[in-house]
Design a protein around this nucleic acid. Structure first.
Lengths: 212, 212
DNA sequence: AAGAAAATGTGGTCTGACCACCTAAAGACG
DNA sequence: CGTCTTTAGGTGGTCAGACCACATTTTCTT
C-alpha cells in the first residue's frame, strides 16, 4: 500500500485557492470598483481550474458583495457593501426576540461610538457644515447618521453600522418621528465638544432611559 | 415580437433560491448546529436544480460559516462564526495602513462598549466570579475579554468582537504583556459599577492616551 | 469472531453542452 | 452617407454526466 503522492494542493479547496488568486489578479492589474474582471472561462483557463470551481468562488464573493455579475456582460468589482449577505444572514440569524434586541442595542452602541469619534477627530468647521446640511434638508435619521459615521473617519465601523442598519430594517420596526430641532441640538453639542451632552441628547432621541 | 414567457423563475438566481429553500428545510426539519443536511445530490433532486447550482449555494453558506462540509461524510450545520469569511475578507480589506488602524480602533471601541454593557447588566456576583477566574488562571487578553463580551449579554456584539479579533490577529501585531493585577483592578472597578474608572483603566491597559 | 475486502454514499472537480442576454460588428436600405 | 436591422461573438446561468478521493457500512473470507 504505497502512499499516493496527491497532486491535490494540500487539501486546500480549489475555490478557496481561486479566491486568493483572484485577489492577486485584481491587485496586480490594479483593478478598482466598477472594473471588469476576466470572464469565467478565461479564469478557468488561466488558473487551470474547471469553470464550475471558478463559479463557486465567484458566487461566494458575490454573496459577500465584493463583486457583481451582469449576465451577458461580465463580472465587475464592487465596493464592499453587505447587501445579499445581510439579507440572507438575517433570515438565518434574526430568529428570536433576543437577537432583535441585540441588533437594536448594538446599533445604538455603534452610533454612540461614532459620535464619540466625531467629537475626538473633528473640529467646529465640520460640525458647522453638518448643521448647515441639517438646516437645508429634510433630515432622515439614517442620512443624518451616515454623516456622523462619516465624520467618525473609520471605514470599518461605518460598514458595521451599515450592516446593522440593514439588519435593523429587516426587523420591520415602526419608524419614529424625527424633529429637525433635535438633530440641530445634537450637532450643537457636537460643535461644543461636549460629549456628555451629546450622548444624553442621543439617548433622548432614541427614547432610551438609561440603558445602553 | 411576442413577449417570451420565461420559464426562469423571475430572474432570481437559482442558487439564491436554493439558499432560501435550504433555510426552510432546516427550519421545517428542526435541524440544529452539528446536524447533517441532505446530500448535494438529494437536494439537487428535491429542489429540481442541478448539482452545480446546489453547490454554489452551499459554497456561499460555507464561506459565511453557516455550514461545514466534510468530504466523504456530508454537510453539517454549524454555529455561525466568521472563519473563512474573515480570512478571505481580510485579504481584500486590510490593504492599507488606514484599514489596519480602523480595525484596532474599532476593536477598542467595541471592547469599551462591552465593558459599559457589563456594568449596566451585571451585578457584583458576576464580577466576583470573574475576579476569581482571573486569580485562578494565567490570563490571556483575549480570554479575559471573551468573558467581558459574554457578560455584555449581546450575542451580536460578541460576534462582531470575535471578527475584529480575527482581523486584529491577521495584522500580526506584537503582543503586549499582560499583568494579572491590571485585570484584577479593572474587574474591581467593574464590581463597583464605576464605569468612568473602568474606561480609564482600560485605556491605560491598551496604552491609549486619550484617543478613542 | 476478527480481520480484510468490496460496496455504497458523500463531497470535490472537470468537461461539455445548452440557454438567455448583451454588445458590437457587419450588412441592408433609405 | 447615415441610419437601421441583422448577425455573430462573448458572457453569465444552468444542467447532466463523469470521474476521483475519502469515509462508512456491509459483506466475505479466514
Amino acid at each position: 500500500m504505497i502512499a499516493v503522492v496527491g497532486q491535490n494542493e494540500s487539501s486546500t479547496k480549489v475555490y478557496i485557492e481561486i479566491v486568493k488568486q483572484l485577489r492577486m489578479i485584481i491587485e496586480k492589474d490594479g483593478l478598482k470598483p466598477g472594473d471588469k474582471i476576466p470572464s469565467e472561462r478565461e479564469l478557468s483557463e488561466r488558473l487551470n481550474a474547471g469553470r464550475s470551481s471558478v463559479r463557486e468562488a465567484l458566487r461566494a464573493l458575490e454573496l459577500l458583495g465584493l463583486i457583481e455579475t451582469r449576465r451577458g456582460e461580465g463580472t465587475f468589482i464592487r465596493d464592499f457593501r453587505g447587501n445579499q449577505l445581510v439579507q440572507l444572514l438575517s433570515t438565518f440569524i434574526l430568529q428570536d426576540q433576543k437577537a432583535v434586541r441585540d441588533v437594536i442595542e448594538t446599533k445604538y452602541l455603534v452610533e454612540m461610538d461614532c459620535l464619540r469619534l466625531a467629537v475626538l477627530k473633528r473640529d467646529k468647521n465640520d460640525f458647522q457644515r453638518l448643521k448647515a446640511w441639517v438646516n437645508e434638508h429634510n433630515v432622515e435619521d439614517n442620512d443624518f447618521f451616515i454623516r456622523i459615521a462619516d465624520l467618525a473617519d473609520n471605514h470599518l465601523i461605518y460598514r458595521i453600522w451599515q450592516i446593522l442598519v440593514d439588519y435593523y430594517q429587516a426587523t420591520n420596526r415602526e419608524e419614529f418621528k424625527t424633529n429637525k430641532e433635535d438633530y440641530l441640538e445634537l450637532v450643537e453639542f457636537l460643535e461644543q465638544g461636549d460629549i456628555d451632552r451629546v450622548l444624553i441628547k442621543y439617548r433622548r432621541l432614541r427614547n432610551l432611559s438609561y440603558e445602553s
